[in-house]
């Protein structure tokens, strides 16, 4: 069993039309709507992943935040890494659920699409990240009414101390009717920030 205090190796947030990586504002575009902002962030962050455009908004948001955070740390993209993904939010995949519901409500205008339906699960976002970064690791998607630091903290610690994962990418990725927010942090045995509930809350609220 690995012992000792765990650390936070890095964190990334995308909210209020700003992208922040480890205390550094990478970009902002206050005027644009959410989908325009996502496209802009995709370009500016040199994402270069055409599959991105097939994703729903939740997957795009989580994918971008994970990519911005992991890219500088992963040198060999083909090497498999044991980074578990533990995400949470309050709206699950409801934005896409509403879209699928619209396509089946009216019998005269019935057009359910597999390309939409597949995104009616929040963990698809984790699948997208796993494919991009070759992560054959654990995926868990939790739903809480609010960011629940206590559960995420204990769960990430458990995964590393029992050697189920070397590192855990944790956080909150939410898309709802008039709100979006991504905050991800990487729990590791190395880094400069202590993996404490208070520290995580501080990073989450001062972003």
């Amino acid at each position: 069993m690995k012992t000792g205090q765990l650390k936070i190796k890095g964190y990334c947030s995308i909210s209020n039309n700003r992208v922040i990586l480890n205390d550094t504002l990478l970009m902002e575009d206050p005027g644009s709507d959410f989908s325009t902002f996502l496209k802009l962030a995709y370009k500016k962050m040199v994402t270069n992943y055409p599959k991105f455009f097939k994703m729903d908004d939740l997957s795009k948001l989580g994918f971008l935040a994970a990519d911005i955070l992991l890219k500088p740390m992963i040198r060999d993209s083909e090497m498999s890494k044991n980074i578990a993904l533990v995400f949470s939010n309050s709206a699950s995949s409801l934005q896409t659920d509403r879209k699928h519901q619209e396509s089946i409500t009216d019998r005269e205008n019935y057009f359910p699409s597999p390309a939409v339906f597949v995104y009616t699960l929040p963990n698809i976002c984790l699948g997208e990240i796993s494919i991009k970064h070759r992560l054959y690791s654990e995926n868990s998607f939790f739903i809480f009414n609010h960011f629940n630091v206590a559960y995420l903290h204990d769960y990430a610690m458990g995964l590393i101390t029992t050697e189920k994962a070397d590192e855990v990418l944790c956080g909150w990725v939410n898309c709802d009717t008039d709100d979006y927010e991504a905050f991800l942090y990487l729990v590791s045995t190395e880094g400069n920030i202590e993996h404490h509930k208070e520290e995580i809350i501080k990073l989450y609220t001062t972003k």
């Binding site: 809480f144 559960y151 458990g158």
Partner: peptide, 25 residues
């Protein structure tokens, strides 16, 4: 704790429950 992880949710919930117990939560 709501776990929504497609069709593995039920079995994964058992794993998650076990881990929260092992972790002392």
């Amino acid at each position: 704790i709501v776990l929504s992880n497609a069709c593995v949710s039920g079995l994964l919930a058992i794993a998650v429950g076990k881990r929260f117990i092992s972790q002392g939560t």
